[in-house]
C-alpha cells in the first residue's frame, strides 16, 4: 500500500471535516476521492500533502510515517483546481522550479524540462507566461511542474473543476493515458461521479467527513454499500421500499404478474437516445428510462396503464432507509 491513512480527525472550529477516516491507497494506481462539496475529500488530500495537519491519526507514504513531516519533505506533487501557476515565470521555469530548488545541474534541468513539456504537449509554449495559456494548457503545465520532482505520489485537487465541459473531458482522457505512461501513484479529488467512474482504478466515496465505501468503479456501481453511494453514483428511483436505477426497471402492458406493480404513465420525456417515463403507482412516482426502440414497441403514451417491475439479476438494489 502506497498511502496509509489511519484514524485521521480534522475539525475547522465546530465543523467536523474528517471523522476518524482510515483509507489505504494502492501503489501505482489512479484513485479518486469522490463525494459532495464540503464532504472532506479536499481536506484529506491536503492532509496527505502536509498542507493541512490532522488533529489525530497517522499518514504513511510508501512506508514512511509522514504525519509530522512538512510539505517540503513529503515528496508529493500537488495540482490545484485553479492551477496555482507562478505568474511571473515562463512555462519552462515553472516546470523547472522544483529542480532548481534541488540545485540540479543546469543541463539536467533543461533536459528534464524539455522531456516533461513534450509529455504535456507544451514544448512550443516553453517561453510563454502562464497568463498567455488557456486553462487546459495551464493545468497541463501545473501537472508537468508537479511531475518534475519525480514525486512518490501525485495529488490532484479537482484538477478539471475550473475548465469547461469539453476541455474537461479531453483532459480526463489525457490524464488516464498519461497515468498509463508514467505509473505514479495518483490520487485525485472530484465531485463528478462520471469523472471518477471513467478515470479511476479505485474510488473512495467520502461524505460528511466519513468514508462511505471503497472499491473499483464496478463494485461501487453494482454493489453500493448504502443508499448514499447508490444515489451519488447515478440516477435512482424508488419502487416500493427499494432503490433502483431507472434503467433497471422494465415496463410491460397487459397481464399483471406477481412481482410487478401497476401504475399509470403521467409523463414522457425524450432526452436524445433515452426516453424517461414517469409512472404513478398511487403513492409513488417511479421513473423508468427506456431506449427508443423499447419505448416504441410498448406502444404507450401518457395516461396508459402499465406494469413496472425490477429487471432480473439486478445487483444494485438496496433497501431504502426508512
Amino acid at each position: 500500500m502506497s498511502i496509509e491513512i489511519k484514524n485521521v480527525n480534522k475539525r475547522f472550529g465546530d465543523f467536523v471535516a474528517l471523522d476518524n477516516v482510515s483509507v489505504s491507497i494502492p501503489s501505482g494506481q489512479l484513485t479518486a476521492l469522490l463525494g459532495p462539496s464540503g464532504g472532506g475529500k479536499s481536506t484529506l488530500l491536503r492532509i496527505i500533502a502536509g498542507l493541512e495537519s490532522a488533529e489525530s491519526g497517522t499518514v504513511e507514504i510508501e512506508g514512511l510515517n509522514a504525519t509530522k513531516l512538512p510539505p517540503q519533505k513529503r515528496n508529493v506533487g500537488f495540482v490545484f483546481q485553479h492551477y496555482a501557476a507562478f505568474k511571473h515565470l515562463s512555462v519552462a521555469r515553472n516546470v523547472a522550479f522544483g529542480l532548481e530548488i534541488r540545485k540540479r545541474p543546469k543541463d539536467e534541468i533543461r533536459e528534464r524540462v524539455n522531456e516533461l513539456l513534450d509529455l504535456v504537449h507544451l514544448r512550443q509554449f516553453a517561453d510563454r507566461l502562464p497568463s498567455q495559456l488557456s486553462g487546459g494548457q495551464r493545468q497541463r503545465m501545473a501537472l508537468a511542474r508537479a511531475l518534475a520532482v519525480q514525486p512518490t505520489v501525485l495529488l490532484l485537487d479537482e484538477p478539471f473543476g475550473a475548465l469547461d465541459a469539453k476541455v474537461r473531458k479531453e483532459l480526463r482522457d489525457w490524464l488516464r493515458r498519461l497515468h498509463d505512461e508514467v505509473h505514479v501513484t495518483t490520487v485525485f479529488v472530484t465531485h463528478d461521479q462520471e469523472e471518477a467512474l471513467e478515470v479511476a482504478d479505485e474510488i473512495v466515496v467520502i461524505n460528511e467527513g466519513r468514508v462511505e465505501q471503497i472499491g473499483s468503479p464496478d463494485e461501487l456501481y453494482d454493489q453500493p454499500a448504502n443508499d448514499f453511494v447508490m444515489k451519488f453514483l447515478g440516477p435512482v428511483t424508488q419502487l416500493g421500499d427499494r432503490l433502483v436505477r431507472p434503467h433497471d426497471l422494465h415496463l410491460q402492458v397487459g397481464e399483471r404478474d406477481a412481482e410487478a406493480v401497476s401504475g399509470r404513465v403521467t409523463r414522457v420525456t425524450r432526452i436524445g437516445f433515452e426516453i424517461r417515463v414517469e409512472v404513478s403507482t398511487g403513492d409513488q412516482v417511479v421513473t423508468v428510462t427506456l431506449n427508443r426502440n423499447e419505448f416504441l414497441s410498448l406502444g404507450i403514451g401518457t395516461g396508459a396503464e402499465v406494469q413496472v417491475r425490477v429487471a432480473p439479476d439486478v445487483p444494485a438494489v438496496v433497501r431504502a432507509a426508512a
Binding site: L51, F78, A142, R145, V149
Partner: peptide, 9 residues
C-alpha cells in the same frame, strides 16, 4: 502558488 512551491520543496 505558495503551497505549490512548498510541496515542490
Amino acid at each position: 502558488a505558495e503551497e505549490a512551491a512548498m510541496s515542490l520543496g
